[in-house]
């Protein structure tokens, strides 16, 4: 079972990219891991949090945790678990 301490199965670095590229790339990457596995995403787009939240709700994937690392630039570190 995944917890907030889950080790990611894959990491996707989206730092420096702007909307909509991080969401498009994450949507591709999550289809390349198996359901239940965890994708770690690093992003600097200032809209990352609400955008990933909206995307995960539409697609049914679960955001396990978001950590903001103070910058500059501020980095958002997401752990996202693929549903089915």
């Amino acid at each position: 079972m995944a917890t907030s301490l889950s080790k990611p199965d894959r990491t996707l670095d989206q730092r420096g990219l702007l909307c909509p590229l991080p969401v498009i790339n994450v949507n591709k990457a999550i289809q390349e891991i198996s359901s239940g596995q965890v994708l770690e995403v690093l992003a600097t787009d200032p809209g990352s949090k609400p955008d990933f939240d909206a995307w995960s709700k539409s697609r049914g994937h679960r955001i396990i945790s978001v950590v903001e690392e103070q910058g500059p630039p501020k980095v958002y570190r997401f752990l996202i678990q693929r549903s089915k």
């Binding site: 909307c19 909509p20 969401v23 498009i24 994450v26 949507n27 591709k28 909206a54 995307w55 539409s58 697609r59």
Partner: peptide, 11 residues
């Protein structure tokens, strides 16, 4: 184009 490329990712 931003909306059109994001929409498929949103299902």
């Amino acid at each position: 184009f931003v909306l059109a490329t994001t929409a498929p990712a949103m299902g």
